[in-house]
């Protein structure tokens, strides 16, 4: 059973990591804490749900659409919400995204009712992988693998492409980045969009097994905050490692110490880390 617990923990960890990577991008590059991050995730899940319900499209196939949709949402949010408050005192940006999160959550409930929706007949529903006494649901395995692929894609993009380097430079030294000919406003928009694309993919993957509901994003977003602090702001590799740690902590802690403490353990780890190593375990 221990192997089963660890396996489930790691699978969830990869998914948590992808959500966290979206958050660490905006936090690390722009120093903006996007409180509406969980709601972006929720909207992606709803998109997958409606594509499935109205057009019979499997979430794994509509995934690129969700990624694009939330990318655009992120970009637009930057242009309309964040940019306006860029010069106001720091707290204003926080409040702006917090307000956005409330608006999105209530809008979702208003438009689509608070009923819990489940996708029951996707390509991966009810299938499982069983080996060596371990049973893994196919939806979670696919979601996990998908998350890893997206994580690697984002990492490659930031490290190896022109725009990726521009993002890094802007994060390090905005003024000098401008001297390189980098349009820093565009970089910020793209970063926010990329952050959205991450949860766009995560949402599509999770819709195959997680209840879809206006509050669906809240817990994952909270865990993302913990993972970002653990992994270091702006550190993608750190977010991946942090995600796995949290996934394992939740699974093992819950199994051995008591399921009601699952999240208490996660937050305890968070408190310890920020006390002892504020820049995160792998911080830069």
């Amino acid at each position: 059973m221990l192997a089963q617990v660890i396996a489930s923990g790691i699978l969830m960890g990869f998914i948590y990591a992808l959500v966290a990577i979206g958050l660490t991008l905006t936090w690390g590059v722009m120093d903006i804490i996007n409180f509406a991050h969980g709601e972006f995730l929720m909207l992606s899940m709803y998109s997958a749900f409606w594509m499935y319900t109205l057009f019979r499209t499997d979430p794994l196939l509509s995934l690129p659409l969700e990624a694009l949709l939330i990318f655009v949402l992120g970009y637009v949010t930057y242009k309309i919400v964040i940019k306006r408050v860029a010069d106001a005192p720091g707290l204003t940006a926080l409040l702006a995204t917090f307000g956005l999160s409330l608006v999105l959550r209530n809008l979702a409930q208003f438009l689509w009712t608070p009923n819990y929706r489940f996708l029951n007949q996707t390509l991966v529903t009810d299938k499982k992988l069983a080996f060596a006494g371990i049973v893994l649901g196919l939806p979670q395995v696919v979601a996990s693998v998908g998350s890893v692929i997206m994580t690697l894609a984002v990492f490659y993009f930031v490290q190896r492409t022109r725009m990726g380097r521009a993002i890094q430079a802007t994060a390090l030294d905005k003024a000098t980045a401008k001297l390189m000919g980098i349009n820093t406003e565009l970089v910020y928009g793209v970063t926010f969009g990329l952050s959205g694309a991450c949860v766009g993919v995560a949402g599509a993957l999770m819709s195959t097994f997680y209840p879809i509901h206006p509050e669906s994003g809240a817990l994952y977003s909270l865990l993302a905050f913990v993972i970002v602090a653990l992994g270091g702001f702006g550190n993608i590799k750190g977010a991946l490692q942090g995600g796995i740690i949290i996934g394992l902590a939740e699974a093992l802690g819950g199994y051995f110490l008591g399921t009601q403490f699952k999240y208490a353990i996660v937050f305890l780890i968070y408190l310890l880390v920020i006390q002892l190593r504020p820049q995160g375990l792998f911080g830069w």
Partner: peptide
Amino acid sequence: HVPEGRHVFGKMTVKDNLLLGAHT
């Protein structure tokens, strides 16, 4: 413009710094 105080991108490699110079 090579700015006062150099302002190289410290956390990035020498090569990446140069590539950034060629961004345009």
